[in-house]
Structures are given as C-alpha cells and as structure tokens.
Write a protein that binds this DNA or RNA. Structure first.
Length: 372
DNA sequence: CAGACGTGGAG
DNA sequence: TCTCCAAGTCT
C-alpha cells in the first residue's frame, strides 16, 4: 500500500467535502443530526440498500417518534415495523438499546465511541457513524463502502473479510479524517462508495477523487478490495404442514433463539430428522418418508394426522447460509386436536395481516391460498 | 475467528 | 437459477 503526504491529505479532504456539499444525497435521516435519527437509520442500513430502507425509516419515525416511544413500544408493533427488513435481531437490539438509554441513562445518549459501544446492537461501525455524525467526534466509520473506497485509493490488499483488517483501515482513515467535519467526511465516503466507486460497474474516471485513486490510475479497480468469498447456502429439505380448520391454520412459534426467532410459520419438520431413523437413508421412498413424518408428528407433538401431498406444493426460500426446500403436506384428522404438546396455536387469516410474518411463511401462505 | 443471521436487486 | 452485493453485529 502507498502513503499520502500531509498536503495530499488536505487536498483530498477539500476535494471530497466540496463534492459532498454539492452532490451529497438528500436523505430523510440527514435532515438533522439527531442521534435517534442517525442511529435508527444506521441500524436499518446494515446490509440493506438505501432504497429498501427509505419507506421503513419514514414509517418507523411515524410510529416511534422518540427513543422513549421505542423503549415503550409493544413487541408486536416493533416487529411489524421491521417485517420484511430481515436480520430481526436488529429490531430487538434497537429496543434493548432504547431501554438502556431511557432506563439506565436517564434518557441521555453516550456521546463517544466508547460509550456507544455499550449499547445493544452497536458495533464499531455504527458507533463511529453516530459519534462522528451526531456528536462530531473525529473517528472513522468503517463500513463496506469505506473498506472498498480506501482499499482502492491506497491499494490496500489486506483481506477485508477478516475481522482483524478493520484495525488497519481504522488507523489509515484516522490519519485522513478532518477534525472539523468528521461526520460529513464519513458520509461523503459512503456516497462515493455507492456512486462512482461501487463494487461492480464503477465509474472511477468521473469520480471527484479520481486523481487520488491509485487503483484507478493503475487500472486495477477490479483487484480491490480483497475479500474471500463465502460458501454457498446449504440445501435443507423440510416438510411444511398445512393444518386447516375453517378459516384458521395451525402455526408453530419458533424458538426464541436462532433463525427467525419467535416468528410464526406453518409447522416445519426437517427431513433429515426422519432419515436418521432409517438403515439405508439413501434409498428412501416418498411413501416411507410420509409414514415416518406421520409417526414423528404423533410422537413429538401428539398430533394424529393423515398426511397427503400433491404436485406443485414445493416452496423454496434462500437465506444467507441456508436454502430451504419445503414440501407442503395437507392434513386431515378425527375429532379435536389436542395442542398440549404442540408449540403453537390456531391463527386466523386476519391474524396473518396483524402479525409480522417472515418471508418464507408468506411464500407458503401464498401457495396454499392460490391452490385453495 | 468463522459462522449465524434476512431480504431484495442486479447481472 | 445462481452468484454476489447492500451503511454489520453477535457468539
């Protein structure tokens, strides 16, 4: 990697901020520097694009105008506000942090990176963003944009997928960030990273800082940043049970930890748990699987069901690390179902509208609805 | 540290 | 359909 002189650093700051003053984006959360506004937007923007966040942010501020409103919000309303955004622990941590501020800190915000890091859901990036934007602390906010922009400007070849690499970038950026406008500087870097210096289809030649962009000058933008790629999602087959009683369906409530924690879905049974009972799982037939499924549902949940499947009942859903392949099964039964051993309840279609449901449940529901 | 943790858009 | 990407944090 290369190094910049003091003169070059000052020229870069001047060029970048002049561009930001002229062409910086006018975003809803940039209309003031209220830490609540900065904070909520930063959490929503984690791993999520600006266009996606926009309507969620507006509605969130309408429903929860202050940190106090958020601290006192009902769980259901909070999750409904986050429905569809994903990474739902962000919403739960948001409320946890709101309660830390309201209950433990008399409604006062920590104003430094060190203090902000004590709040739930706030890591090094978000702490730097809030501290610099809302409180003017001259600290870097190293997100994916900052990694990419500075990796190219200085041809830094450290692997950004390794946690340790963050420190290197923080040190480098600390020597470049201006003491008088750290918040604008960090936001300008993000705007740069999402316009002229994107991961793909960049336009370095027209970037306001092209003269400072060593990777561009050398024609090697495609080599930066260095990042090891992640393994593809693991394919996991499931059975999904459609258990209907009039306009109600039996849904299970997922455990309070892990994927889609606390969310309602049609009962899902991992097919692997059925295969484990076989001597030769490689040669299992569809009929055998249904028999095993019927037994398992009876044993685990105390539900005696007659299960049948039909063509066109396959639903797939891909998460970051898992790909679910769901075979929907219709159920019939005699008398009344005893739910004593089942972790769920009968929910009406009206409940479906009221509750926050994960995308995969919506997919299954749309499929069931369309087939009657 | 490596992996978990959602969803939607682009190519 | 598949891969990669998008203002990361937690364990």
């Amino acid at each position: 990697m290369i190094h910049w002189s003091t003169e070059k650093i000052e020229a870069f700051q001047q060029t970048l901020l002049a561009w930001y003053d002229k062409d910086g984006r006018d975003l809803p959360w940039r209309r003031d520097h209220d830490p609540y506004h900065v904070w909520v937007s930063e959490i929503m923007l984690q791993q999520t694009q600006v266009n996606t966040v926009m309507p969620y942010y507006t509605r969130f501020m309408d429903w929860f105008p202050t940190v106090n409103d958020l601290a006192n919000a009902p769980e259901e309303k909070l999750m409904k506000a986050w429905e569809g955004l994903g990474y739902y622990s962000r919403a739960r941590n948001l409320q946890k942090a709101a309660r830390q501020i309201v209950d433990d800190n008399h409604g006062q915000w920590p104003t430094t990176v060190a203090g902000l890091l004590d709040l739930a859901g706030i890591g090094p990036y978000t702490a730097g963003a809030i501290a610099s934007i809302a409180f003017g602390e001259p600290v870097p906010a190293v997100d994916g944009n900052a990694f990419r922009v500075f990796a190219r400007l200085l041809e830094i070849d450290a692997d950004i997928s390794k946690p340790q690499t963050r420190q290197l970038f923080e040190q480098v950026i600390s020597t470049i960030i201006p003491a008088d406008r750290p918040g604008d500087f960090n936001q300008a870097i993000m705007d740069l990273g999402s316009s002229y210096m994107t991961a793909k289809n960049w336009d370095s030649a027209n970037s306001p800082v092209s003269a400072f962009d060593q990777a561009f000058l050398d024609g090697v933008e495609d080599q930066y940043p260095v990042k090891t790629k992640k393994p593809r999602p693991k394919r996991i087959p499931y059975f999904g049970l459609v258990i209907q009683d009039g306009d109600r369906y039996l849904l299970e409530k997922r455990p309070s930890t892990g994927l889609l924690a606390n969310f309602w879905t049609f009962p899902l049974i991992k097919q692997e748990t059925l295969l484990a009972r076989l001597d030769e799982p490689e040669t299992v037939t569809e009929e055998q699987l249904v028999t095993l499924l019927t037994q398992k549902v009876a044993e685990d949940y105390g539900l005696n069901l007659k299960l049948t499947t039909r063509p066109g009942k396959q639903v797939t859903h891909t998460f970051t690390h898992q790909k679910w392949l769901i075979t929907l099964m219709d159920a019939e039964w005699q008398g009344t179902l005893d739910l004593s051993y089942f972790p769920g309840e009968w929910l009406s279609t009206a409940d479906f509208e009221r509750l926050a449901l994960p995308k995969v449940q919506d997919k299954m529901w749309q499929r069931v609805k369309s087939e009657g």
